[in-house]
Design a binder for these strands. Sequence first.
DNA 1: GTAGCCTTGACC
DNA 2: GGTCAAGGCTAC
Length: 981
Amino acid sequence: MPFENSSQDGDSNQLLLKTEILSSSPPQCLIYQKLPIQQEQNKFNLNNTKTTTKCNNNLINPNQIRQNSGQKHLNINISPISSCSTPTNCSPPYNINIYGNNEQQQNIGRLIRSNSVKINPFNGGESEATKTTTNEQQQQIVPSFLQFPTDANDGNDDNNNNNDYLNQPFNMARQPNLEHENIGRFSSLPSTPCNTHLQHPFVHPQQQQSSSSSSNLQQDLGNCPICNDKVSGYHYGLLTCESCKGFFKRTVQNKKHYTCSGNKNCTVEKSNRKRCPHCRFQKCLERGMRTCAVREDRMRGGRNKLGVYYKQDRAARSKILQQSNTRSSSTTNQQNTHQQQLMIYANGLNFYENNNSNNETTVTRSNPYANETFSSGVKAKRAKREVASTYGNSGVHQQQQVNSKYSSAAYLGGLPKQQDQINSNITSHQHCSSTMTGFDVYLQSPTLSSTSSTNSSANGIFGSSTASTHLSNVDNNGGLAMLLGNSIQPLEENHEASTSIAPMMMNPLPFHLYPITSAHNAHTHLQQHSSVSNNKNNIPPSVAVVHNVGGNSLGPSSSASSSGVSSSGLNSPPLPIPSSSSFSPSSSNKYASNIHHQLPLVNVKNEIPSAAIHATAPLHPSMYHQSSAVGYSPIMPITTPTLHMTTSLHVTTPLQPYLLPHHHGILHSGGPLTTNPHHQSSSEHQQQLLPLCQMPPIEGVFYGNHHQQQQQTSFSNLNGNGEFTSAGGRLLIEELCLSPQLERPVLITLQSIRTCGETYNSSLDFCLQVITKHLDTNILWAKVDELFKGLNENCRSMQFLNAWAALHLIDFAYALLKGELSNKINFPLSDGNMGSIDTHTLALLGCTELFNEWNAILQQLRNYQFGKADYVAFKYITLLDVCFYRAPNDPPNIVSQYDKVVQMHDQVLHSWLHLRSYSGNPSIAKSDSLHKFSQLASKCVERLRSRLNQSPEIQNIPGFLSEMLFTNKNVGIGGGTKLVD
DNA sequence: GTAGCCTTGACC
DNA sequence: GGTCAAGGCTAC
């Protein structure tokens, strides 16, 4: 009997509690007991309801003993702290959690100090070594109990502290976060950040097999992504605290409308979360809380369909952390490994690169999962395991270096040209014979970040471009540190640096694909480009890309001046304006080596604190979110690629998650940013618990017969004709936002392109592929969209034919504003090299001459704090635009749908207006940005059509693009391919 | 109105 | 029967 006996003498302060833990290892026998308390008498009733649980795992499940609220039980959890890398090595020390109120905890504390509580682990078949360890721990365990645990890192790591503990009060004030359930937590080892015995809720592999593995998440779920309070569980689609859960519920249930007395950019923290409910609710929405998970019928209990997602997300977190923890236990750098875990979390982990075209000599293992069609979670897990198995003893820096080294991956945003540089860095500084898949690189790359958008926020999309060039001037270590180590530095260390450098780093350098170090190089480069262009794309050399040529020239000055794009920011150098040509076939990797000291400089060096460029002072990720104004979608699409952000000629800035090195909890990845920059700026110390799995579209959230009707509410407010009704009480635009086809369509497009594994003759070739693939993406959306189905097929085809280009622009705009995309997209050329194209060029259908207008639109949207609802509204309103119904020869079947289209259009518009009004920002409503998209799209189409008309490449236009560009027939898309199945 | 605690109930 | 994410209750 583990708790052999207990007794009391009527005085709770002198309660005698004899406890034994029967430990046999492996597996150890873990025991806990619930001790009901007669609280009103301040006594422990030890003769009542003894509950003993034995687990075959090395760590007891804390949730199994969590306080049964309302029953006034004192729960004592005694478990070994599993810090071992393998089960067979597990042994005490033990961790004791006492659950109860303050007084109860104090009583137990006194008992422990007085050694009235005895813990007597013994071995059952252990090895001698383990026995020794166990015995040693047994000898030490009582004093160590007195060391307060983890949350307050007192720095008290003296395990050998002897008798002082007997006089130490249990000062609960030291653990402000241990209210409620876990009010007294005693560890036999201090849990400091550097403690290799760092407690971790996902400790043992066996734990994952237990039925209650998921419960372990609740031991320490981190902090609420809304207010930074302690997370209590999944609530309405997100891991949040109890208060935000309640707040969200009240707001939705009561249909509350808040207004912000400020600028709608209030910080939301635990201390001030009551201050501005408007901003708090906005943050809830932005971080992913789902209004649809609030039951309209207010029925209690039950589960909803989000449970599947919760389970997946929980499993993914648990497994990844478990795997990582196993490895991390053997590393000497716990924190780095933990950060590695966090980055993995933040990334979604489904994008890998198997193209090691130029690194074969160093890559000895290809990605074994390249051809597998896992969900992201599986990929993430496998990738995580691979990372852990290969680099378990490596710090983040090392891993990132190696990752980047072997990343051929820059295909969708990386910089292959950097690989040689990285190779040299790796070789010179740290030889690593380990292999690494390209996929692993993406484990290091946060899915969402804000480099460009943050930059854009400050200076416009094509704002100043200083930092990257400056970065190029640092030494190899510094550059590599910047390149690879942004997530490593604690927030405080480089705050100044990040603050200073952020606005500069945010600026993309479009078309600075290659580090031209001299005029000769540039010339050679241009020659090659011209050659490729002429041979492959029939694009005159005169329009080939122009590169920087030494000095301060960041871009083709002539092109810049002609384009008329002005630099923004006082310290901004001339803007790197793309050449007039949209297509610049390149082979950047040929210029990868020997670039580091020869990059063109920009006169901004003095603006950057030395720490920022020091080799060992990598930029902190705060630089990415300190001023970002990008949308945030916390949902990790299964097929979402993780992209790098190219920020300079040679520095690929991995989009970093928010890493909180000082936190020792579970998960605190951030990365994705909020639409409102303030939300993020205030959350540097917030842990963002991003869902790892894709949130399912909720079409009827709740199970059960009672909700059969509600299961139809996804579009229950649409009748069979696609007409909007107010049934259900939810705005139409809110319903439309749930469409899975509107979740990062651009990334899905790029992922599909990447999956194809094709090579391209030129940038034009690749650009056409992107256009075509994204056309497919939007066709799919239009095909399955419930609202759009309300129109007949010809009408739908006409609408889509009219809107497709604008939809393309809107998608790219939103993706860029959200920071989903790198500023450059790299792609494999047919000659084996890597090409690169500016993302904005892809957005503009290759028409870089329209950058001015594009930039203006993006800036305007940014000012509007363009969010998901706006994006969705723009898409639908564009798709349902009827402006082209002016053609006198429109067939009757089209005209007949006119009223319906107008009706649907107005429904979306009104719904959107209502929503924006609700959120306090109606100014965007029906803004001219919407029209500008259409106008710009028309120009893009016109130019692209003209260009292709002059090019034989038109024969190779894939998919429906040709028909989109050149057909005027009122037929189904693709010359008969209807939008209906 | 907030937020902690409690109850409920479908799913496992 | 346990889990846990819903909604409800209520002290503040």
